[in-house]
Structure formats: C-alpha cells, structure tokens
Amino acid sequence: MESNKEKNFNAVVIVEGRDDTKRLKQYFPGIETIETNGSEVSKETLAEIKKLAQTREIIIFTDPDFNGERIRRLVTQVVPNAKQAFITRKEGEPTKRGNSLGVEHASKEALMRALSDLHEVEETKSDLTKSQYNALGLGMGPNARKLREKVGVKLSIGYGNAKQFFKRLEMFGISYEELKEAVESVK
C-alpha cells in the first residue's frame, strides 16, 4: 500500500462488520468494504459479492476465529479466486476484557502486513501428503496446535485446526519443502 491517504488498488474487502470497516478506514480512508454482518451471510450479500467479483478484485479479510473461517469458506465458494488476507489471533486480541477477537482490534502494522501479503487459491495443488504433514508434527500430538499457530504466522495463512490447516496448505499450493522449511524455522 503506497499511501494510507489514497486508494491504490481496485479491490473490495469483505469484512464481518462495521467495526472492521471503521478500523480499516481509519488507516486506509479510500478502502471499500462489504460487511457480511456476522457469520450468517445472506444469499443477497453473497450474490452481491459474486456480481462485484466480475469487475473488481475481492479480498476476504475476516476475524481469526471460527465464525471468520465460516465466512471465508462461504465467500470463497462463490468467488473461488478471491484473495485472502489474514491476521494472527494475537494481532486480533481485544484491548478491553469481554470483547471478541477481531480485525477491528488489529494495529495499523498488522493491517498493512495482512493487506500487502495476500494469498490466492492455487490451481495446482500442493505436493504435500497427509503423512508428510503428520510427520512434521502438525496433525496430532501435544504441541501440534501451537506448531500450526506458529507456522500459520510464518506463512501468513492464519490458524486452523488440523484438518482445516492441511486444506489451507493445499489450497494455497504450499509445497512440502516450503512447509518443512517453515516448521524448522519456528521450532
């Protein structure tokens, strides 16, 4: 992003709610968003996003939690070539007790990093096998969750449970070698 004062991309960012939009506009005044208004994304909203995707780039930028993943999955079904932006769970932690995890709590630096390090679904699938994934300690074991979290940060692809994380690695075309290197660097 060249300047936080001007819109320098033709993308529309899909977010969960108005607080996410407010936070993004705070640092990127020209940014355009569509709010899903929570995890129950309406058919109308999905149709609007699908139609917009014919002429504009779509970036999915949801919270790093279960509902955010659900929205990401629903939007990706209607716009398979949508780009994906992620913040870590730590970057989305609220400053006030009782608030939920979210994009609206992320720092300017975290938002800038997420929007400049976008991921796309790869047509060619990853060469990663389930047995390689498990051998790297990501599938199961006492430290698998923490390891997936660290690797997700390293690769900027967010966190997922064992099954979701494997699917995400495949979806983004991350090779066994790339994954092995990421695992070794965070251990």
Rank of each mutant, 00 (worst) to 15 (best):
N81G: 06
N81W: 01
T33R: 06
F66K: 14
I60R: 01
G68Q: 10
A82R: 01
T88W: 06
S42H: 04
L74I: 07
E44Q: 05
E57D: 15
D20Q: 03
K96M: 15
T55Q: 15
R70Q: 08
I34G: 12
I59Q: 05
Q26R: 08
A53K: 02
V79R: 02
T45Y: 04
T21H: 07
V78W: 04
I34C: 12
I71T: 03
R89L: 11
E91H: 07
Q54A: 13
I31Q: 02
K50D: 14
D65T: 09
V75S: 07
D65G: 11
K96L: 15
K22E: 11
T62C: 10
T36P: 06
R70W: 02
R97N: 14
I31M: 14
E69I: 00
V75L: 04
L52C: 07
E69Y: 05
R56V: 09
F86V: 00
R97Y: 11
N99D: 15
D20E: 06
P64N: 08
F66E: 13
I49T: 03
Y27N: 05
G98L: 15
R73D: 11
V41P: 01
I34M: 10
L24T: 04
V79Y: 05
K83Y: 04
F86L: 00
E40V: 04
T36E: 12
G68C: 10
I71Y: 02
I34S: 11
T62W: 03
